[in-house]
Design a protein around this nucleic acid. Structure first.
Length: 153
DNA sequence: GCCAACGTTGGC
DNA sequence: GCCAACGTTGGC
């Protein structure tokens, strides 16, 4: 299943992802998003990489699930901003996967365009108030985005 | 910086 | 287990 993952480019952008072999998706502290990574993502699944809190916000490229799920190490680190005092090594709360870079779109596809595209109006990221940092994407929507980006599916 | 949306926390 | 208060997300 294709996915959409959000990241603030000031914190971690698609260019940052392109510079590393793979990136552990640390810091997700929402149960629904965690469950997607923990229970549903498969190695090789593709994900639209969305820049949030950006000017403009939009989809910047494609990433790929590059690992099986494992406990987010930052939950055990008292010095991390993502530290969770209720999590233990024996009983972790937060799981993540690694992502690797697949492609950066020639141009970012702005949210504004996604919203006005008749085939994408129902895509979750277009809906107001969607704050989930990880959402499943319908295959037809995924393919439409690639087409808008001018990238081969 | 504003504010709508909405998840989480904690008192009861 | 309800629900008000609070915190965060994220577009604008």
């Amino acid at each position: 299943m294709p996915w959409l993952i959000k990241s603030e480019p000031d914190v971690f952008s698609i260019d940052d992802l392109a510079k590393v072999p793979r990136e552990p998706w640390t810091g997700v502290r929402n149960y629904q998003a965690r469950n997607y990574m923990w229970k549903e993502m498969k190695v090789g699944d593709l994900a639209l990489f969305y820049h949030s809190n950006a000017t403009p916000p939009g989809i910047a490229g494609i990433a790929k699930v590059a690992s099986a799920p494992y406990p987010d190490p930052t939950q055990f680190d008292p010095k991390s901003e993502y530290h969770d005092p209720k999590a233990t090594e024996e009983n972790p709360r937060w799981y993540l996967v690694d992502f690797e870079h697949v492609a950066t779109f020639p141009e970012l596809i702005p949210l504004e365009l996604l919203k006005t595209d008749s085939q994408l109006s129902e895509m979750l990221v277009c809906q107001r108030g969607t704050r989930l940092s990880i959402t499943p994407v319908e295959k037809k929507h995924y393919q439409r985005v690639l087409k808008l980006a001018g990238v081969k599916g």
